[in-house]
Amino acid sequence: METQLVLEKWQGVISTVIIGAKKEEGGSRSDTVKIGGQITMPLLFKEGATPNKPRIAFEISDIAPFDFDEELIATYGKAVNDPFAWADICVNEYKAGLLCLKMQGTHPDFGNKSPESAAKFISALLSKVKVPLIIIGSGDDAKDNLIMPACSEAARGERCLIGCAVQDNYKTLVASVLADGHSIIAESPIDINIAKQLNILISDMGLSLERIVINPTIGALGYGLEYAYSIMERARLAALSGDKTLASPFICFVAQEAWKTKEAKASSQQGIIWETLTATSLIQSGADLLVMRHPKAGQNVSNYIEALFKG
């Protein structure tokens, strides 16, 4: 007797967000990156379409990073002191499809770069590197509100993904993103209600839900991974059940969490596997964009994604 399969029929669909604009679209990127668009829970290909694969963004910083583990510094060598050389290695050597730039040097404690010099830096990077760009502030709210509008304007038309908007500091960023044709990262502290609320606040300002990517805030393997894992599953189930305000793709800042752990610092292989497994576990719960650092971990995850989507 044939066993009747149990299939979930969802009415919702995750928004498709496009990052990067080519010349004919008003930008200067060589390619665009599409995420989201799925109509089923992760990796259940026989149940419904998952039109876009999860993508890996390599993380770079405008100044030499201070939170990079020795293993990472050793891997990138002197390039970490020169963001352009660093970006070049990621794109040409490690075949990064997109880059995630952190404007660390604008932080009051780490160089306090002015909005003008931040904007100049963005323009220079855009002219040197042709892949789509994610731009992240330094995390200092007051300073980000000065810097990010300048960065956004410098990248006008390039359809970048810019972040991170948080519940008590989103208006300035939304206004810039709206004006300059980018998309936004909405960050919530492992909290599905805040994620939903922030998406509503942002869309109330006129930025469509199709231009929002949720940063659910993740913990690394062994450091609260399961919280984000379940928040993502819950949000995804709600979205597929028809809640449009949660139907955004997820971006997960994998590397910054993974490399902070004691385990990652213990040995080169353990660091790589920590970043790798944090990433693939989050793919299992719905991650669409993974921000990563170690090329070997990036390659592991990228091979894994290819294998999953091949069959």
């Binding site: 990796l43 292989q269 596997i273 790798t276 497994l277 693939t280 299992q284 592991n300 995850v301 894994y304």
Partner: peptide, 11 residues
């Protein structure tokens, strides 16, 4: 491969 093995086991 240990990395591939861990990813598959993890899934």
């Amino acid at each position: 491969d240990p990395y591939e093995e861990a990813m598959e086991a993890g899934a």
